[in-house]
Design a protein around this nucleic acid. Structure first.
Lengths: 191, 191
DNA sequence: ATATTCTGAATGAATGTTCATTCCTAATAC
DNA sequence: GTATTAGGAATGAACATTCATTCAGAATAT
């Protein structure tokens, strides 16, 4: 088996287990078994458990940021840009529920404490598209005068919570509900 | 020392430790030391660790529900009732940050999985004030036609996230910002 | 072409640590 | 003197990590 393949197997196994059962339900021995490798093998690819967990997070984050910034309509009005990001978030996580669950596990754990929330939108070296949106909105007086943190919370918290409910099967977010949800978030901050 | 006092000491110690460090940073030995009792003593008051953790949750929940339903203006319009609950939430958790942190730890843990979110507003035997609010709002056509879950998320998720940021010192929620925040949540669901 | 040596990836039993829980002894109350 | 409560050392289970050993295949020699 090619080297890269084995690394992928380990990442996949760990991600699925952690997403499904949390960090506790995923001891190294179980990850190894699910990946079809020996426990020791994992340590040939990742220095230790923490490094493995953080690597998985980084991979997911990269995929998500790539998805959101692809075709980002930076020249369009603030409202259009916001809808692009917000709906992109819904689409991406609806299609990749394991990524969502892993993110959530990671975020609410000692690992996640270190990560600042707004950094998610900052792909390495790129300008932060979220802060750009916020500042442009303020300057053009299309959004309320709120601290950036609160603006972020009003626009994204309901989406994240609803995605969670969708993935847990408590509510079905189809296209029309997604539209309604994102519009409502916008309604909360628009002037 | 009176029996009840010792029980309180244990609960207080466990709550503070868990709120500050998470479930991991609070082994039974540490709880015992902080409470000023022997490890074995804890097991005279609580069957095991899980029972202790759930008992603390229940105590906090009772205090919160009591606070929110006290002076609840059930005869007033939906909007007024919503503001009462939402601002009560902000006030309570601003004044009791440890309760908030404990709630958060609990909610994002294997324990919390079992608890359904909307049950928070259901004090034993009482009608669920949240569902009552939602149904009245729908009937009177003052709120958008959304599933209850999404309505809940739009109105409370930004508040919870902002409380978190406030308690972590990332933003200062004073009275005027609280007013703005709660109003914005209402704006997202009102017709 | 075949045999021999070398390399380093893969493995999982063994180790050390961290805890929840138990249980025997000491202290205290009645 | 007996019963109840407190204490904390001892126990055992769960886990992350290590490391001596195996072994397939590459390199080299014959």
């Amino acid at each position: 088996m090619a080297k890269q393949v084995k690394r992928e197997d380990i990442i996949r196994a760990a991600m699925d287990l952690i997403a499904a059962q949390g960090f506790h339900g995923a001891p190294m021995s179980m990850i190894a078994e699910k990946a079809g490798v020996g426990v020791g093998t994992i340590y040939r690819y990742f220095e230790n458990r923490d490094v493995l967990i953080k690597s998985i997070y980084k991979e997911i984050e990269e995929r998500l940021v790539a998805y959101l910034t692809k075709k980002y309509p930076s020249e369009e009005p603030v409202r259009i840009c916001f809808f692009h990001i917000a709906k992109g978030l819904v689409t991406y996580f609806t299609q990749n529920p394991m990524d969502f669950k892993y993110f959530e596990q990671f975020h609410y754990s000692p690992f996640g404490e270190a990560h600042r929330r707004n950094r998610i939108f900052k792909s390495a070296g790129q300008p932060d598209i979220f802060m750009e949106l916020y500042e442009r909105g303020l300057a053009q007086q299309v959004i309320k005068n709120l601290p950036p943190t609160v603006f972020f919370n009003l626009t994204f918290a309901p989406i994240v919570w609803s995605l969670r409910d969708h993935i847990l099967g408590m509510v079905a977010i189809d296209d029309s509900l997604a539209e309604l949800l994102v519009t409502s978030c916008w309604d909360s901050v628009k002037i």
